[in-house]
Amino acid sequence: MTGRGEVKPIDSWYVDLEAENAMGEGHAPIWRHLIGLVMERDLSDCTVLDFGCNQGGFLRHLHAMLPFKRGLGVDIAEKSIEKANQLRAGLPIRYEVRSTMQGEDARFDLAFSHEVIYLIPDIAAHAADILSALKPGGVYYAVTGCHTDNPLWPRWRKLVAERTNTVVQDRSITDYARVFSEAGFEVFGRRLRFEGFLPYSGASGWMPDFADELDYYGQTKILFRLVKPR
């Protein structure tokens, strides 16, 4: 750590780079479902942040479905940001290696993160950081299924520690809601309730069986809508 909320860059999230490259393809249906839940439907004049963007796929999907004026994706994984910039294909998006939004006060209309907040060591500093980066009335959509209310969390906690270059954090759904509320957000939440078909791909370390996978995407994964007061 180099300051409150600031984290040193890493090479990549996953130890196995093939898993890193496959992450976007696996998340794409969930991203599309998330975008369908966004209450703001005209983003043509909006500036959008993706915090923990990995290889940048979410902002590319968002622009295809809800075109925005400009976007910024940030991540601490240097190889992921390098790949994101290679793939942006002329879109009004830039990607940067960074862990805080210092110097970006009241710049963004919307912010997003997908399976990122459970990895952040100082979640209170992150909440204050995003609040500052949003314009009055701006909204932060944060998705996570990695919380202590997840029945698979003891198993996943071990796998995160083994397979990624990160430090595991233990927080409940209520812990997140409380921290963001104390930072000054109006906090709303819902189950993500992914409605698409999930492919059966056999047993994996993450999901003991297919029933667990269906329950996870239908019941366990949470979407927070965090609003900065005007």
Rank of each mutant, 00 (worst) to 15 (best):
D45P: 01
A84I: 01
A106T: 06
C53M: 06
T174Y: 11
I123N: 13
A177E: 15
R32N: 12
R32V: 00
F180T: 02
A203K: 15
I173W: 09
S12N: 14
K83P: 10
D212I: 06
V187I: 05
R41M: 04
R32I: 00
T144A: 03
F210D: 00
A106V: 01
L37V: 05
F210V: 00
A211V: 11
P121N: 08
P29W: 14
V15I: 14
L17A: 10
I81L: 07
I120H: 05
G138A: 12
D149W: 06
K69E: 07
I76G: 07
E115A: 07
K79P: 10
Y176E: 00
R191F: 11
P199W: 00
F210T: 00
D109A: 06
N21D: 13
D129C: 09
E82P: 07
N150C: 04
Q169F: 01
S201G: 09
L87K: 03
G3H: 10
K158Q: 15
S44H: 11
A161S: 10
D122F: 05
R70N: 15
S12F: 11
V187K: 04
S181T: 04
T100Q: 10
R94H: 14
T166S: 15
D50E: 02
S181A: 06
T148R: 03
V187R: 09
L192E: 10
D50W: 00
D16S: 14
I117D: 02
G205H: 15
D105N: 12
L66G: 12
R163G: 13
E186K: 10
A203E: 10
R94V: 07
Y217W: 12
A203N: 13
V167K: 08
I93C: 05
L72D: 00
F224P: 09
H114N: 14
V160D: 09
I35W: 09
L223G: 08
K69F: 04
E104L: 15
Y95Q: 04
V116T: 14
I35P: 02
P121T: 08
I81P: 03
L159H: 13
V187M: 07
S181W: 02
Y95P: 01
G202P: 07
I10Y: 13
Q219I: 03
D109I: 05
V74K: 06
L110P: 06
Y118T: 10
Q102P: 08
M65G: 01
S172A: 03
G57F: 05
V167C: 11
N21H: 14
E96S: 07
W206P: 00
T144I: 08
D175P: 05
S80V: 03
M23T: 06
R98Y: 09
A161T: 05
E25H: 08
D42Q: 13
E96M: 09
D75P: 06
K158F: 06
V38I: 15
F185A: 01
L87I: 06
T166D: 15
E186C: 07
L152Q: 08
E18T: 11
G26M: 15
D149N: 14
G26P: 03
V179Q: 12
L134T: 04
A89K: 04
Y217T: 05
E96V: 07
A28S: 14
